[in-house]
Design a protein around this nucleic acid. Structure first.
Lengths: 333, 333
DNA sequence: CTGAAAGCGCTTACAG
DNA sequence: CTGAAAGCGCTTACAG
């Protein structure tokens, strides 16, 4: 900037005014400065600018996701990006892979860069470490799972009700032996969806589930193996509720391997790509990650803009999409 | 930092030494400083640090993608993130949506933040605007498509050869009327894949394709409509080569709508989720986006570390995966 | 082993 | 409409 000032024969302050489009610079000086900027290939340094600025704005936010490559995270990320772009901010993002340490390290990296806010899918059992930043004025919105030991905005799916609706759908098709396949019980959404499953069973008077629940299925491979085991039991379940994306895919592979995809009913939580093209189509309780991300970002920017209301909990509705697999009647035993 | 120095009764320089783990601070002072940091919830400001540092390191890189939410981009992004994390850097990312303006704006935003390097999927017809930064020492690696009017490292798939292999596969199954469905011809990969298609036809002596090529299909909906049109021609193609992800999905929907998925052969370029679970399975020429991202990031960090060799072009091989749809013999006319 | 002074590239708070 | 001085939070290049 000094070089630009020297070349155009004005003060630093005038260059600064031109760059920031502050009013009240004569057309002539503006032109001289603009030319010097061109000529010198001058690139403003945002770090220096925000360091000195009274509001310290860095025009960036951080997004902490489970895995930026999985479709749910990616859709949330994209929705956040779109809102951020509308506000002129850029997005830093990282994957945590269900490792609380990485959650903290990512948060620290973002904080060291003075992001104006964060969107976080929490992994650890304790987000109180963020209280300091929150008090210091950083806005944080949680997504998918509520924070623990911290009061903050959160945007979640109606996991429990959505899962209950999916299981009720199977019950109303006549099923009694409905297996549950779930992720680690340490994950809040997995807990909620399991509660929805038991809710539906109890309401239907099926208090004691006749089929097993299997937890801790971290991958579609594990889900496939667990499904094959379930199918070997006597009697096997007549229906399966898969409480997550990857698990649904594992179940599909297992059913296909046994050629049971037209005999055993399946409802999955969270939509699966090309689910409508499979035969039968896969019935799911679909989440709306784009809406979730958009709502989280909007809430975040509201906070950044100064909204000081009490922390809100936004619940985004899920939608049951019947496509065939969930409408299969119980096979005769 | 000033407060920490005051509270622990040492100079700024000593605090700086402790934070950066420079050797030669007495254990006693180290302890006092560490305690003061805890007590004051001190958070180092990386922007201030890199502003003053002689090397100006910001410990961040930028990634410019077509759309962070699409599976190809997301896989590249994730692979880059993993390499970056190994080096202790964080990643800024953004989507361009095939809009050259947004490519430039994103690049400018990253440059203003002084990223140490960028991984770019170029959209515009001219990347010479980055020459200035390159000369100023910023490392840039291109992915998926080579840069135009700029000399830089690039990591691409073997689009032309891969597409040719896919089309040869159809020819060897007996097909003569093979339609081509492609994206905008302004996209380099779309051009290359079309060249691969014509290569394969010519080599087989099918110089004049008996079936049409349709370009400019930006979405799976457009691809579906184009496929329905093709199927209405007399005679219709007996096989389809879909040169991209979303196009393949559109073709699948069209074939399903006409119940022709077992009669018309299909090979897609780039893999499709759950392709193995469809009936018939979808034969594809699979790319390896994780490998591409990893190679791009490794190349980038090599440059950042000081590698001054000539710009390299890395070609990542594609793999033909026969799953059923590509092995259908031509239907009797 | 420790610290005082200068300065990175900007904006602020003035003054004219 | 324009500019000189101070300072954001750090590290550098010294000196002791």
């Amino acid at each position: 900037m000094r070089d630009v000032a020297a070349l155009s024969g004005v003060s630093l302050k005038t260059v600064s005014r031109v760059i920031n489009r502050e009013p009240g610079v004569s057309p002539e000086l503006t032109l001289r400065v603009t030319r010097a900027i061109e000529q010198l290939d001058f690139r403003p340094n945002l770090a220096a600018s925000s360091l000195r600025r009274i509001d310290g704005r860095t025009a960036s936010i951080g997004v902490i996701l489970e895995d930026i490559a999985n479709p749910y995270s990616a859709a949330v990320h994209r929705a956040v990006e779109d809102v951020a772009r509308g506000h002129g901010l850029i997005v830093l993002a990282g994957s945590v892979d269900e490792d609380p340490d990485r959650e903290r390290r990512l948060a620290a990296a973002f904080i060291a860069r003075r992001v104006e806010g964060m969107v976080v899918v929490p992994t650890g059992e304790d987000q109180s470490y963020l209280a300091i930043e929150q008090r210091a004025g950083m806005s944080i919105v949680f997504v998918d799972r509520p924070p623990m030991h911290l009061d903050a905005d959160v945007v979640v799916s109606d996991d429990r009700d959505g899962a209950a609706a999916g299981v009720r759908h199977l019950i109303s098709a006549g099923h009694r032996r409905i297996a549950f396949l779930g992720d680690l019980t340490s994950i809040r959404t997995a807990q909620e969806r399991f509660l929805g499953y038991t809710d539906a069973l109890e309401t239907a008077g099926l208090a004691v589930s006749q089929a097993r629940a299997v937890h801790g299925l971290r991958s579609s491979e594990l889900a496939m193996v667990a499904t094959l085991d379930l199918l070997d039991e006597t009697p096997p379940p007549t229906a399966i509720f898969a409480s997550q994306n990857l698990i649904t895919i594992g179940v599909l592979r297992a059913l296909r391997a046994r050629q049971l995809e037209r005999r055993i009913a399946l409802v999955g939580f969270d939509d699966v790509p090309l689910a409508d093209l499979l035969v039968p189509g896969v019935t799911v309780v679909a989440q709306d990650p784009a809406r979730i991300g958009q709502l989280a970002a909007t809430t975040l920017f509201g906070r950044i803009a100064g909204d000081r209301g009490p922390a809100a909990r936004h619940v985004v509705a899920t939608t049951l999409i019947p496509r065939g697999s969930g409408e299969i009647a119980p096979a005769e035993v």
